[in-house]
Design a protein around this nucleic acid. Structure first.
Length: 884
RNA sequence: GGGCGGAUAGCUCAGUUGGGAGAGCACAGCCCUUACAAGGCUGGGGUCACAGGUUCGAGCCCUGUUCCGCCUACCA
């Protein structure tokens, strides 16, 4: 017997442990069963579960559990990401609190510290995944810095280098002065801001006059090595080749001509700072200009900044502006909208910075990745994301992969101190070919995303040709948020195609971002984050998971509202209670046969089985297309409103009655439908479904719901006839209830019902009169073609029948007339609408015949209904007169 | 600057190929009916952002406008 209330906490742990103990989540390296594989988007090892993970994990778990139950050899491969910059930042802060810093500690000691930290806290998020029910194969858990994955990283690096797809060079990269490292273009977040445009005067060195340049970054004038104008610009043509002198520092630089310059912007003359601006960098190359680096790695002014040396870059800007103004070289300042790049890890403003870095030549890789999607080998769902994908891939630029931090995959490159040879190697080399043993490994580590790009095959054992790799690559689907479409998905596509010659996944399902109830992005600083673990404690994990699935409509962000979780918790409560109801009606130890003998079933039985059959199809189709919300709401609708509200109520007379045969038949069907529903629900709410399943006397030839076969759409129990008949019964019931409700009659009051029907409906109603009695709370039901209602009857019109409820003594004539008039008005409006259509010759001639026919039928029905209502109104008026 | 998405009931959102708009929550009325008052039954509530167009017919297709969100970009 189930407890009166569902208490999620203990139950969740109990069943999760049970599943683990039974090893249900373990995949087979070799199997006759078809493979189904998802690799988890590895959360940062420093992280803790946020609501975005919860959504991501829930959707993956739904797919995995569904496929597992459907007989697939299912692998959900879990793991974590070493998250270079983020993790290093966390440990550095920790050190800071202890009054230390990594430089004092030294590289090796520092890395030891990070590993220690990882051992202590790295399991946090994994345990949180378990707590929300993730059915991952934990025996295959991976970490991006594992031995095996590190080997894959080196292998990829070396091969790309050997093919000329990795190179080293001095370029302008994005530099974070706080993290002290290069960043890829993607790792820079642009933020629109209202800034200023400063107009600065540069004097000609010979004679009078000046040229004015406009800039958003006045302090960089210290690194200017030219002024550029458009060669076609009549205003400046004659000045090309002249020299100007930079104020204060007195450097002499030329005025040059370059097509790049937009004459309409600012003054049409641009200061050129090749070491501090991407465009100027290109211009500097074109014109052989000097590259002067005025900054240091921590964002301060370098030696080259002369009097400003040592100042912070923003401090320097203020000072430069003041000094220029003082000597009359600041012509004017205007407002200017611009976008400023920030470090995606620490939000510091990034700096275009000249330095030597490693790059991946990415175009050749991107071409394959574009083709795979164009050719349909990989399907992106929803399809709208394909455009973004193509757009990014087609305009891709070389990927800066070196990072000046310590935590990560060290670049497998050594430099010979003897001859300067560059050695790129899978293994640590001991000696250069020149004989020198003085080898120094590159100090940099690789972009974390470099290793996660290999995730779908490195985790399966690559570069070895393992059974796992053969069985599970390409994986079935990747489920993730759009925020890492480029960072991760795109790069996995490129690397997968390059090294496996096959796409890493067949489908990519991109889900939405979760925002707060007001549509704001959740962030710690705004204080509007929803802690998923708090949700699971408060409402139970299942209710929370079901909510997330129900929210997951394609192509729209989720505005998360706790109220909705509350609502689904009530749904679980409903399920719990119907389970209790069943357990009360099944004798202890009684075995319920799952087999359904169609011949002996009642109408209600056949109806609910038919409905079950169709909900199975709906769920199946929805999940096939990743319409999680549709699957969830189909189940909600079915279990609550069809199973509980109608079916359970309908069979109560049989259950409480004396006929053991019909009692048994009803309970059999009920148990069958409910057990099947639990199986359908299991991927969404694994805990409560298992708890109930284990406590009811089901016999399915397996010991856990999570390995029970998933209900299949081809069960042959659809029964359109039963559904039609049931609709007649339900119509009658609803009609009586409607009269009761509208006339404010007590639910406990037993009413009489007279139903005037067609032959067809008469038969159906007579056969199922017991349902009417129970559901509409009626007694003395009369059904026939020649029903004449007594004085003071309320009435309702339904297809094929007219229902009267005699109300002598209770009757409120005005209320009933009002009710009928309301109904009449509605019908008249509807009729008018159809009438207009039918009197339109164009409609008759151009619309499909079936549509025209349907409208004609409808019109006739309305007409009849209207006539009946009018009759009833007249009748009441007559009664009223005769009573007066 | 380019691109994408959204605007439907008081709120949050569904709406598959164009044939008279749905759900949940909230609201109102009546009910403690032996699974469930964390419940049941009934009801009210919408010019589908705006303006045009295509069509016999538009929430849905086309064009434009407004507002909101996001992605992306080397005009200093």
């Amino acid at each position: 017997m189930l407890e009166k209330r569902y208490e999620p906490k203990d139950i969740e742990k109990k069943w999760y442990d049970f599943w683990i103990e039974k090893d249900y989540f373990r995949a087979e390296s070799k199997s006759d069963r078809p493979p189904y594989c998802i690799v988890i988007p590895p959360p940062n090892v420093t992280g803790s579960l946020h609501i975005g993970h919860a959504l991501d994990i829930t959707l993956q778990d739904v797919m995995i559990r569904w496929k597992r139950m459907s007989g697939f050899n299912t692998l959900w491969l879990p793991g974590t990401d070493h998250a270079g910059i983020a993790t290093q930042n966390v440990v550095e802060k920790e050190l800071q609190r202890q009054g230390a810093d990594r430089h004092a500690l030294g590289r090796e000691k520092f890395i030891e510290k990070v590993w220690e930290w990882k051992k202590l806290y790295g399991g946090t998020i994994i345990n949180q995944l378990k707590s929300i029910g993730a059915s991952c194969d934990w025996s295959r858990e991976r970490f991006t810095l594992d031995e095996g994955l590190s080997r894959a990283v080196k292998e990829v690096f070396v091969r790309l280098y050997e093919e000329g797809l990795i190179y080293r060079g001095e370029y302008l990269i994005n530099w974070c002065p706080r993290c002290h490292t290069a960043l890829s273009d993607l790792e820079v977040e642009h933020e629109d801001k209202q800034g200023k445009l400063y107009y600065i005067k540069y004097n000609f060195i010979d004679g009078e006059g000046h040229i004015t340049v406009a800039t958003t970054r006045p302090e960089t004038y210290l690194g200017d090595t030219a002024v550029a104008v458009n060669p076609e610009d009549e205003r400046y043509k004659h000045l090309i080749g002249k020299m100007v002198r930079l104020p204060i520092i007195n450097r002499e630089i030329p005025i040059i001509a370059d097509e790049f310059v937009d004459s309409s912007f600012g003054t049409g003359a641009v200061k050129v700072t090749p070491a501090h601006d991407p465009n100027d960098f290109e211009m500097g190359k074109r014109h052989n200009l000097q590259f002067i680096n005025i900054l240091t790695g921590d964002g301060r002014m370098s030696e080259e900044a002369g009097p400003y040396k040592g100042q912070d870059r923003f401090e320097c800007r203020k000072n430069v502006l003041k000094d220029l103004a003082d000597i009359g070289h600041l012509e004017k300042v205007t407002d200017h909208a611009m976008a400023i790049g920030h470090c995606y890890r620490c939000k510091t403003i990034v700096e275009p910075y000249l330095s030597k870095q490693w790059f991946v030549k990415i175009k050749p890789l991107a071409e394959e990745a574009i083709r795979a999607v164009k050719d349909g080998q990989v399907k992106i769902i929803p399809i709208g994301w394909e455009n973004s994908y193509f757009d990014w891939m087609e305009n891709i630029k070389d990927w800066c992969i070196s990072r000046q931090i310590w935590w990560g995959h060290r670049i497998p490159v050594w430099y010979c101190e003897g001859c300067g040879e560059v050695i790129v190697s899978r293994d640590t080399p001991l000696e250069c070919k020149c004989g020198s043993r003085e080898l120094r490994q590159d100090e940099d580590v690789l972009d974390t995303w470099f290793s996660s790009a290999l995730w779908p095959f490195s985790t399966l054992g690559w570069p070895d040709e393992t059974d796992d790799l053969k069985t599970f690559y390409p994986t079935s689907v990747l489920i993730t948020g759009f925020d890492i479409l480029f960072f991760w998905v795109a790069r996995m596509m490129m690397m997968g195609l390059k090294f496996m010659k096959e796409e890493p996944f067949r489908h990519v399902y991109i889900h939405a971002l979760i925002r707060d109830a007001e549509g704001q992005k959740m962030s710690k600083s705004k204080g509007n984050v929803v802690d998923p673990l708090k949700m699971t404690v408060k409402y139970g994990t299942d209710a929370f998971r079901f909510t997330l699935a129900a929210y997951a409509a394609q192509g729209r962000d989720i505005k998360f509202s706790e109220q909705r979780v509350e609502g689904y918790r009530l749904f679980l409560n409903k399920i719990w209670n119907v389970a209790r109801f069943i357990s009360m009606n099944v004798k202890e130890g009684e075995e319920i046969t799952a087999a359904i003998k169609v011949k002996k079933l009642s109408l209600a039985d056949r109806w609910i089985l038919s409905r079950l059959s169709s909900v199975i199809s709906e769920v199946h189709n929805a999940l096939e297309e990743y319409r999680f919300n549709d699957a969830a709401s189909a189940l909600y609708q079915f279990v609550w409103h069809e199973l509980c509200d109608w079916y359970v109520e309908m069979i109560k007379p049989e259950l409480y009655g004396d006929d053991p045969g019909s009692k048994r038949s009803a309970i059999n069907t009920l148990v069958h439908v409910f057990e099947t529903s639990l199986a359908l629900l299991h991927p969404f709410m694994p805990f409560i479904s298992e708890e109930i399943w284990q406590n009811l006397p089901f016999r399915r030839g397996c010991e856990s719901l999570c390995v029970r076969e998933y209900p299949s759409p081809e069960d042959g129990l659809e029964d359109r006839g039963a559904e039609k008949k049931m609709n007649v019964v339900m119509d009658a019931v609803t009609a009586v209830r409607n009269i009761r409700g509208e006339l404010n009659l007590s639910p406990s009051l037993e009413l009489q019902a007279l139903i005037r029907t067609s032959n067809n409906a008469e038969e159906i109603l007579n056969e199922n009169i017991a349902y009417l009695a129970k559901l509409a709370k009626t007694k003395e039901i009369k059904i026939g073609k020649d029903i004449h209602p007594p004085h003071n009857s309320a009435s309702a019109i339904k297809p094929e029948m007219e229902i009267f409820v005699p109300l002598e003594g209770l009757f409120d004539i005005d209320a009933e007339i009002g009710r009928l008039n309301k109904e009449k008005n509605k019908i008249e409006e509807d009729m008018e609408f159809v009438r207009k259509k039918l009197s339109n010759e164009n409609f008759i001639s151009k619309a499909p015949a079936s549509v025209v026919e349907a409208n004609k039928t409808k019109y006739n029905e309305y007409q009849e209904k209207l006539r009946s209502i009018q009759d009833n109104i007249d009748k009441i008026n007559k009664w009223r007169k005769s009573d007066e």
